[in-house]
Amino acid sequence: MIINGVTIDETFAEAFPMKATRLIITAHNAKWAMISAQAFTGFATSVIACGCEAGVERQLKGNETPDGRPGVSILIFAMGGKGLAKQVETRSGQCVLTSPTSALFSGLDSEKDIPLGQNLRYFGDGFQISKVIDGKRYWRIPVMDGEFLTQEKTGVTAAVGGGNFLVLAESQSQALAACEAAIEEMQKIPNVIMPFPGGVVRSGSKVGSKYKALNASTNDAFCPTLKGQTSNDLPAEVESIMEIVIDGLTKEDIDKAMKVGIEAVCKLGSKEGVRRISAGNYGGKLGPFHFHLQEIMS
């Protein structure tokens, strides 16, 4: 399949089941909501080393948030509910509770839930106040700038992590421009995040390493500087490859995100140096979710 001169490989991205929640951080203004959200979702690119993958889903206007203030919705993904709870708790405690004017709410209703403010409340040292409003419990924790309001629990849902595609381009700047264009479109899709910095990964990895201590290492098959040293089928004109990783609440959400992302890349087309779109997988053995690029784009 070729779109606007860009070859869509007949391959698939392979993704894994994860657990996720959505949180809504509000603040006095959009700026401070975003600051808190960015801190929360910082250092949350890959579960392997960060404990979770998290990112800003989108900005919210006052009429979209529980307390009527500007906010940001973020999604957090982890391998299991327990790990997710731990990350949510530590990050909420360090990045939201601490952030001026913030309040923290669940953005996801579900049968199962994990603590949100349930343990943060103890920061109140006995002065915390519980309020049940419309069947949901909130905690009001006195802090130096006023009161930190947080919902007691947030929902947990099964989710999908690790959707991806690779953009193979003629130059680094063209690869980056293509990915930026993709991210801009993908950010409009709900229920997904692209957890890496700016949404773009330049260091795709393979499973395993020659060094025993490492369980992942550089994806040499897609390292253009190794064209002559490893077995690969990278075209001669491809000088730079970047990856976009997508976590989403459902497979369909990721499908949508990949589609608009790839479309944006293809829109730039071969004339902007984009040559091929590919995807990372492990031969289909490790993850139950497969995103066939050609199917998505058909």
Binding site: T26, P66, D67, G68, R69, A103, D134, Y138, G146, E147
Partner: peptide
């Protein structure tokens, strides 16, 4: 005197 965010939720309810 204070501004209490939770009141917004209460009034919404």
């Amino acid at each position: 005197t204070h501004t209490l965010g939770y009141l917004a939720l209460l009034f919404t309810s």
